[in-house]
């Protein structure tokens, strides 16, 4: 193969990775819209058991995704690869990353929402791509040009602006604990991306994703949901039937399938174009969410939403930059 052939092959590989990262954001925004539909069905509309509803929703969503990815890997003849990966050192890195994402990330996010409210929790947790980029710089020696940093900052700033909810004014006794938990969530999601990307050097993205979903299901069903029911003093046996019979469960299962497609694109793109680029483009879900909401849900486009969207779009253009210049993702020999 001649040098121009090799360069052309790398360029088309990079374009594919960038498109997958963009696609992951587009599909993820649809996931949010589908999840939103489940809240029209009881008991998913109950505000008195909001914590349990949120954790059970996430659990049902991830159970469906875990079943589908396991089935997909079985159909592709990769199921033994799952066992081989679990027994290997990179497989253990995937497990650590999954635990960081599920426990610190999602656990911190849910706790932050409860204690500090969405006005503060959402913008803080949106910082996770910045946390990931900083970790990737040191741990993976990722090559991030100045234009990439500016793009990342714009993407994160735009997403913070789009997700901003005016504070309600009341800050409870545990408000600062809530802020701390939101910070922990950003740290959890950021480090999850770096841990899993490092492991995906030696583990197929489809297998890493399968391990992530299985860990997540264990976290929700084995720890989060039982803890929430104890905290709210609710017998799980009393409410589990309500959840299982609800039409909202079918919608959450559909959302799980949508989310799986998004995560598959995201994991593959992190492996192909690096954590910082993939996360910056993935966070564009905030932009696509606005677009889809305006088109299909008749959501009013406010000035803040438009400005935030323009900032995200500018950031994404800077992150994509000139793919011809991305020949090596890391500052190594």
């Amino acid at each position: 193969m001649t040098a121009p052939d090799a360069a052309g092959k790398t360029l088309s590989f990079m374009w594919k990775g960038l498109l997958l990262a963009l696609l992951s954001g587009v599909i993820f925004s649809l996931d949010g819209i589908v999840i939103g539909q489940s809240t029209h069905y009881p008991p998913f509309d109950r505000k008195d058991i909001l914590l349990l509803v949120a954790l059970a929703s996430a659990g049902i969503h991830d159970i469906c995704a875990a079943c589908l990815i396991t089935l997909y890997n079985w159909r592709c003849g990769r199921l033994r690869e799952l066992g081989r990966s679990l027994a290997s050192r990179p497989g253990k890195s995937v497990l650590i990353g999954s635990i960081l994402g599920a426990m610190l990330g999602m656990g911190g996010y849910m706790t932050g929402l409860q204690l500090a409210g969405p006005a503060y929790t959402l913008p803080i947790t949106t910082l996770y791509p910045a946390v990931a980029a900083i970790c990737a710089l040191f741990v993976l020696k990722e090559n991030i040009p100045p234009r990439g940093w500016i793009g990342l900052i714009l993407c994160v700033s735009g997403a913070v602006l789009v997700g901003y909810v005016p504070p309600a004014g009341l800050t409870g006794a545990y408000f600062y604990w809530g802020i701390a938990f939101a910070g922990i969530a950003a740290l959890g999601w950021g480090t999850e991306g770096v841990c899993i990307t490092s492991a995906m050097d030696f583990v197929e993205p489809e297998i890493a994703l399968n391990m992530y979903y299985l860990t997540s299901v264990l976290f929700y069903l084995g720890l989060a949901v039982p803890c929430a029911s104890m905290f709210l003093e609710i017998e799980l046996t009393d409410v589990s039937g309500l959840f299982l019979r609800s039409g909202g469960t079918k919608i959450l299962a559909l959302a799980g399938a949508v989310c799986l497609c998004s995560y598959l694109c995201w994991y593959k793109s992190m492996n192909m174009i690096g954590v910082s680029r993939a996360m910056s483009l993935n966070i564009g879900y905030a932009l696509w969410g606005i677009l889809f909401s305006a088109l299909f849900a008749e959501v009013e486009l406010t000035g803040t939403l438009i400005v935030g969207s323009v900032i995200i779009f500018a950031g994404m253009c800077l992150v994509i930059g000139n793919p011809r210049k991305i020949l090596s993702l890391r500052r190594v020999e």
Binding site: M1, T2, A3, A6, K9, T10, F13, M14, K141, M200, D201, N271, M272, L327, S328, L329, R330, V332, E333
Partner: peptide
């Protein structure tokens, strides 16, 4: 290709 862009392998001709 993945091993190569991530700096594990290097491609030469």
């Amino acid at each position: 290709q993945c091993l190569s862009v991530n700096g594990i392998l290097r491609e030469e001709t």
